[in-house]
Amino acid sequence: MNKLTIYIDDKQFQAEPGKSILEVCREHDIEILTMCHLKGVNDVGACRLCLVEIEGMSKLLSACTTKITANMVIHTKTERIKKYQRITTELFFAERNHVCAVCVANGTCELQDLGYKVGMDHIRYPFLFPKCEVDTSHPWYVMDQNRCIMCTRCVRVCNEVEGAHNWDVKNRGYQVRIISDFDTPWGESITCTSCGKCLQACPTGALWPKAIVQGQMKKNPEIIDELMERRKMIL
């Protein structure tokens, strides 16, 4: 297959057509921050962290959903993008009630890592402190809306990988919430198979197994992609 020539941060690369900018960057160890992207499920371009500047385009485009084209000139680390990544990170923290010190995912949390990566020393925006529910009705797992960042990775994993479609989204705007079935308690869900993939997919401590405490969460989000690759081999 003919490879395409693209330029990322003033370096030339060859890549197969049909790949997204993010895939090419990851192959060549060019860091692109992401939150809603999860290898193995479809991309939605919702977190806006992976925005890149493309010459000839007036808009910033999300690297995860934009396919490469021949002679594309991409900039991933301009001052403007760095500034926006910082604001995005701050808004993630200000949106819900993220308290690392009491969180099960402390140390394995992607949001926490993101804060370090963008050098966030404080948050300039007032916290919204929304009132959020904690759903403990499932016998094994807990869903804590306070720690949810609405990346919808759990929704996509449940739908695309497990095929159960237990998770979905309700409401709109800043009042969106992840729901189980038609907004029933998780424990009463008739679609949930208790497979636990959503726990692995979740970037924060919003989904976690019962009987663990602060900082004990073990995460392996790559398992989703491994699973999908193995399925391809069987087929």
Partner: peptide, 20 residues
């Protein structure tokens, strides 16, 4: 802010912050 679908962060949280 009311009509934002809530999918992407800048619109979901940004409009709320600006409104406040």
């Amino acid at each position: 802010m009311d009509e934002s679908c809530g999918k992407c962060l800048p619109c979901r949280v940004g409009t709320k912050m600006m409104c406040d």
